[in-house]
Amino acid sequence: MIRFENVTKTYARGARPALDDVSLDIDRGEFVFLVGASGSGKSTCLRLVLREERPSAGAVHVAGRDLSRLSSWKVPDLRRQIGVVFQDFRLLPNKTVYENVAFALQVLGRRRHTISLAVPEVLELVGLEGKEKRRPHELSGGEQQRVALARAYVNRPPILLADEPTGNLDPTTALGIMRLLDRINRTGTTVVMATHDEETVNQWRRRVIELDDGTVVRDEAEGIYDSSRRGDPGTPGIAAAGEPLPIGEV
């Protein structure tokens, strides 16, 4: 579904690359945690998938498209295949919950009738029924992220990207969002979640791809994330791609 082939991304000429010769392969229906410290290249990965950036070298394939050959007028079509949520929710403050979700369909030219069916359905899925008329500032952070998820998913995209979706939320609320992402994943949607929330990663035991300084240092199924293992290379017994620590399933 998403394939990186030796992707290098350098933002400024001569600068250290944000991604350095990264190869990844994410299958349809997978749930992947993209972990790493700030500046490790997680966001760059997501931006490349959305084709907000183009790789300096290498190829990115998303949903059967070679993004380096994708003409710019076909980019909107690519993005309709991808839902995105962010740490800061990015809701429109002057629109209600319903309008925020409907907006994603309106700009694609969907019929009013279609919208009036799809929006309540997705709002129910994310557990916001009855709050259609609220504005974002009247909602809690968790609820706002649910609205953002509803907006990202209302078009039923095959891929969902989440950039630190739980970063602004307390652990309990984060758990709710994670359950929702899991539920969406179980409908067959490929979910890629960039995060540095160790607890969440360790609870869910999904595939973990760890980036450090623009390179993939670990890629394991049912992995965990322990940021203390990185950044202190002198610590004995802790390799970048070490075995998972035994942590109780939650």
């Binding site: 993005r79 839902g83 995105v84 990015r90």
Partner: peptide
């Protein structure tokens, strides 16, 4: 920016 993210065409 949201329009771009959800894949609205340039025209819209």
């Amino acid at each position: 920016s949201i329009m771009r993210l959800v894949g609205a065409s340039n025209t819209v």
